[in-house]
Computed example of a mutant assay.
Amino acid sequence: MRFTATRAIAAVLAVLLCGYVFVVEPRLERESARRRQAAIDAALPPTTGVTGGEGRARRPLFPARGEAFVGIMTNAGVQDLTDAARFTRDTGHRPQVYQFAQDWAHDRFDAGRFDDVARRGMMPLLAWEPWDHREEAEEEELRGEQPDYRLSRIAAGDFDAYLRSWARGIAALDYPVGIRFAHEMNGYWYPWCEQSNGNRPGDYARAWRHVHRVFERAGATNAVWVWSPNVHYTNATSFERLYPGDDYVDWVGLSGYYGTAGKENYQSFDRLFSDSEARLRRITAKPLVITEVGATDVAGRKAEWITEMFRSLPRHPGVIGVIWYEAVREIDWRVGTSPESTAAFAAAVSDSRYTTPWSPDSEPRLRR
C-alpha cells in the first residue's frame, strides 16, 4: 500500500481523535463534574450527617406549627443537584424538601442518592411511578396504556419483590422519607389512573393499601405517605373513590399550574386550589402539601402570580408545604424565567414563615 499525503493526514487525524476520545474527553468530563460538584457544594453545603436523633427526648417538628416549607422538584432529580443549587443561589432559599421521580421499570433503590439529598438539609420526597416512563405514548389517548403496570397486578402482589427491596432500603435510613406513590390518579394520563389501562373502580385504593402494607411489614415506619391527586377538573375521577383511608395516608397533596391546557388565562393560586382543597376536606383532615405548582410567564404575569401565591398561603392553614416545579416540560416553569419572577420569589420566601429547617432529626408534622 502506497503511503500518500492523504493517508498520512488520515493517520494523524485518527491518532488525534483517539487521543481526544480516550484522554482529553474523559479529563474534560471529570473537570466538568468537579466544577459542577463545587458549585453544588457552594450553594448547598452539607449541613449535617444523615444519622437520625433516635436518642433525643424531643425531635423538632417539621414544619413547625404556623409555618410551611418550600421545596422544589427538578428534571434531573437525584442524579444531579445542580438545578437545586442554582435555585438556591437565585432565590437565597435552600429547599427544605426535594422531590424527585423514579419509575419502576428502570430505577432501583440507592441509599446514597437519598443520603446526598438529606445531608444537604432537604427531606427526600420520592414521586414513585409504577410504569416505564420511557415508553410513554405520544398520542394523548394512549398515554396511560401500559398493561404490565395495571393496578390489579400491583394489588395481586406481582411486584412484591421490587416493593420489598425499596421498603427494606427506606427502613434502613435514619430519617423520614416522603413517598408520593402514583400521583395524579384522578386523571387519565398515567397507567395507574382508574380511567385508563383497563383499571376498574376500587383498584387504585386496593393497590395503594397493598404497597403500604408491604412497607409496614418491612418496618419502614419512617415513610411519610403522600396521597396526591391533580386539582379537580371536569370529568376527573372523584377524590372519594380513590382515597385509601386515613390509616394509609400521612399527607395529602395537590398538583396545579397556571398555564397548562385549559388554564392559559390568568388564574390565581386561590382559584386553582381552593375548590379542590374544600373537596379534600370532605374526606380527610390530613395536612396538605401542594406537591406540584408552577406558573407560566407567557403573559408576563409570573412575578405577580408568585407574589399572590405567597400572600394567599397563610389563608390556607392546612397547607404545610409547597413544592415548586423547577423544571422545563413543554413550558418553562422555573422561577428564574425573568429577573422580576426571581425577585418576587426571593422576597416572598424570605418571610420567617417559610424558613423552618429540615434535618434528619425532624419529626414530620402529621396534624394540621
Rank of each mutant, 00 (worst) to 15 (best):
R2F: 03
F3Y: 13
A5G: 09
T6L: 15
A14M: 13
V15Q: 01
L17I: 13
G19A: 04
V23Q: 09
E31T: 09
S32E: 15
S32A: 15
A38R: 14
I40P: 07
A43F: 04
A43L: 01
P45I: 05
P46N: 02
T48H: 14
V50K: 13
G53K: 10
R56E: 05
R59N: 06
L61C: 06
R65E: 15
E67H: 15
G71V: 04
A76P: 01
A76M: 12
L81M: 10
A84C: 07
T91Y: 10
G92H: 04
H93P: 00
P95M: 09
Q96C: 00
A101W: 14
Q102P: 07
W104N: 00
A105N: 06
H106A: 13
D107E: 12
R113V: 09
V117P: 03
E129T: 10
R134H: 14
A137F: 10
E139S: 05
E140D: 14
E145W: 14
Y149C: 06
R150Y: 07
I154M: 13
A156S: 10
D160L: 08
D160I: 04
A161Q: 11
A161I: 04
R164S: 11
W166G: 06
D174H: 08
P176H: 08
A182V: 04
N186C: 04
Y190E: 03
W192R: 04
E194C: 08
R200V: 11
Y204I: 03
R206M: 08
A207V: 07
R209E: 07
R213S: 06
R213V: 04
A218F: 08
N222G: 01
W225F: 01
V226W: 00
S228V: 02
T237N: 02
S238T: 15
R241L: 14
Y243E: 01
Y243V: 00
D247R: 11
V249H: 07
V249C: 02
V249I: 09
V252F: 10
G253V: 12
G256W: 12
T260I: 14
G262T: 06
G262K: 05
N265D: 15
S268Q: 00
D275T: 10
A278R: 15
A278F: 01
R281M: 02
L288V: 10
V289W: 10
I290V: 11
E292C: 09
A295H: 12
T296S: 15
V298A: 14
A299P: 02
G300E: 03
E304V: 15
E304T: 13
I306N: 09
T307M: 05
T307V: 06
R315I: 03
P317T: 08
G318V: 05
G321Y: 02
V328P: 01
D332V: 01
R334Y: 00
V335M: 11
G336L: 04
T337M: 09
T337K: 04
S338C: 03
E340Q: 12
A344P: 05
F345N: 00
A346P: 13
A348L: 03
Y354Q: 06
W358Y: 05
S359A: 12
P360G: 05
D361H: 15
R365E: 06
